[in-house]
Design a binder for these strands. Structure first.
Length: 260
DNA sequence: CTGGGGATGGGGCCC
DNA sequence: CGGGCCCCATCCCCA
């Protein structure tokens, strides 16, 4: 399951129209001082409900039910996770600026709720917060038995189980990282760094199969699929395969695979 | 319409 | 607790 969907955004098929956003509020020119906004200034947007579950689901924009890509599409499931595929191996070998992540060291702390292991108690502790019951989502743990705090964003309906997670999310509202070249603002420093590469032309991620290089690892990963004979994403209706989920979505949207 | 590159968002994990 | 990074997702644009 994609980690990005563990906390769902409220759903719109469209990403923000940046030109609109920029004209409406954020980036120009008042947004520049945001780079220096201390966190305490953002505290006003923090809401802490010690016993949680004050989150009003009715207040959410309508379609909150996540539509699993799997339900719409048929990834070939070449492996348990896309990142562990052979394509990943190829990519690992192709990295130029970032060495492959080492095999995790001895993880001796086991999560009681899942099979994950951690190298430190703190890591395990933080992970276990992710099992925090939210409503009745975790059926095996009665929600009354483990009341947990809920951290709510005042700017949007999102809810988090830790203050740190909420603070991280709030950055997406405050956009404290501003490009000195064009003024575009980002929520995190590494997003800004990636953006700066669009100015500098730096492409640290190179393909080992061809001469192409990329500024972003994800884009290299997508590119590596083009070298793969087996496409990961398959249409349920016509069995046609695609190298990227987005291509499959486009394919199904064009009418081949009527919604089931 | 399809395939691919570019750019970006965002939650989780590790240190 | 925060920074950095990982990974996934998605949109836009162009050939």
């Amino acid at each position: 399951m994609p980690r990005s969907f563990l906390v769902k955004k409220y759903f719109t098929n469209k990403r923000p129209n940046y030109s609109e956003l920029e004209s409406q509020n954020a980036v120009i020119p008042e947004s520049y001082p945001l780079a220096e906004l201390p966190m305490r200034d953002n505290s006003s947007v923090l809401t802490y409900y010690p016993t949680a579950l004050l989150f009003n689901m009715d207040a959410l924009p309508a379609p909150l039910s996540p539509v699993s890509p799997v339900s719409l599409t048929c990834p070939l499931d070449l492996s348990s996770s896309p990142s562990s595929s052979s394509g990943e191996d190829e990519e690992e070998a192709g990295r130029t600026s970032d060495p492959p992540s080492p095999v995790p060291p001895h993880h001796i702390y086991h999560c009681l709720h899942c099979s994950k292991t951690y190298s430190s108690p703190s890591g395990l502790s933080r992970h276990q917060l992710t099992h925090c019951p939210r409503g009745s989502e975790i059926s095996s743990i009665p929600s009354q038995a483990l009341p947990r705090p809920a951290f709510l964003c005042k700017n949007c309906p999102k809810e988090y189980t830790s203050l740190g997670a909420l603070k991280m999310h709030i950055r997406s509202h405050t956009l404290p990282c501003v490009c000195t070249t064009c003024g575009k603002a980002f929520s995190r420093p590494w997003l800004l760094r990636g953006h700066i590469r669009t100015h500098t032309g730096e492409r640290p991620f190179s393909c080992q199969h061809c001469s192409r290089a990329f500024a972003d690892r994800s884009n290299l990963r997508a590119h590596m699929q083009t070298h793969s004979e087996v496409k990961k994403y398959q249409c349920c209706s016509c069995s046609r395969t695609f190298s990227r989920m987005s291509l499959l979505h486009k394919h199904t949207a064009s009418g081949c695979c009527p919604a089931s």
